[in-house]
Design a protein around this nucleic acid. Structure first.
Length: 291
DNA sequence: TTCCAGGGGTAGA
DNA sequence: TCTACCCATGGA
């Protein structure tokens, strides 16, 4: 059993469930046990099932694996979970600003703001491409097929799989993408990305610590086929940069209802509404809602 | 049948 | 930089 220290304030259940990624394989929320579950393939090759539950001063992680995890395995699990749950992200400036907005503060002050992300940027890019120009329902189904058909199964529970490696996604043929994964035209984008990453031609994970400025980072993300403004801004959020709004049909619908009296807002109008939030625009939108 | 969903690539101006 | 047009998929 691994223990993860938590920041203050931190609301485990609300944090995990405030972003849709919790519903995308291989992540899962077990409501009955209030547990976050995920199968992960470690760099050692071992496949582990992780079950994370809340505690008063720390989170508990149950690790189920065929072989006892090595110290390196344990370190990797801890690092991946702290990253995915953003337990070490500095949000105090956002909290300070949020205090000025009563209805938003009500949602944030309990200890939210740490939106779930994947251990690898590769997984987040694939997931983000699968949210474009489709319904949330279909997004969930696409990810379910990707994971169940190509991910390494948990030895203890073969019906649960890890997210597939780039190599796995690079190796399957076009017919498999079309007939089995059924990602639509997104399949070609994801296969191309997987090939670039598997061959070493593109190092996505280096972007986590590159320290590049937002403009360069956005340009780099947009060089991925299938990633436009919306997806690039979503991925910048994944990387802890909240300066840009990921304007999509959901954002437009909220602004239309709350701020423009039912009129369709332009992107410029939407930008103006959240402009004062500076480096925190994405989180400000995310915890905004119709009162 | 047509539209469109948590958009993006491409060609042409 | 901006605008048409096209893109697989599946539900309404």
């Amino acid at each position: 059993m691994l223990q993860l220290s938590i920041p203050q304030p931190y609301h485990f259940k609300a944090s995990l469930n405030s972003y849709g990624w919790i519903a995308l394989a291989p992540c899962r929320w077990d409501d009955e046990n209030a547990a976050f579950q995920r199968v992960e393939r470690l760099s050692s090759g071992q496949v582990v099932m992780l079950t994370v539950t809340d505690g008063t001063e720390a989170l508990s992680v149950k690790i189920e694996a065929e072989n006892a995890p090595s110290p390196a395995d344990l370190a990797e699990i801890e690092q991946n979970l702290r990253y995915s749950l953003r337990l070490d992200e500095e949000l105090s400036d956002f909290y300070t600003r949020a205090r000025q907005h009563p209805s938003l503060w009500q949602r944030v002050s309990i200890g939210t703001g740490r939106l779930l992300r994947s251990p690898t940027l590769f997984e987040d890019v694939v997931k983000t491409i699968c949210t474009t120009n489709t319904t949330w329902r279909q997004t969930k189904q696409m990810l379910s097929r990707i994971v169940s058909h190509l991910g390494d199964a948990s030895p203890l529970n073969p019906t649960w799989q890890a997210f597939p490696t780039p190599q796995k996604l690079a190796d399957v043929d076009d017919a498999f993408y079309k007939d089995t994964l059924r990602l639509g035209y997104r399949g070609a984008y994801i296969k191309q990305l997987a090939q670039e990453v598997a061959s070493g031609q593109r190092d996505l994970e280096a972007l986590k610590t590159s320290g590049m400025d937002n403009k360069t980072l956005k340009k780099t993300l947009k060089s991925i086929k299938g990633v436009g403004d919306y997806a690039a801004h979503t991925l910048m959020m994944s990387l802890g940069r909240y300066d840009e709004l990921a304007i999509d049909s959901e954002v437009r619908a909220l602004v239309k209802q709350k701020y423009t009296n039912g009129a369709d807002p332009s992107d410029a109008e939407i930008q103006a509404i959240y402009a004062d939030w500076g480096a925190w625009k994405y989180l400000a939108y995310w915890f905004d809602s119709v009162d």
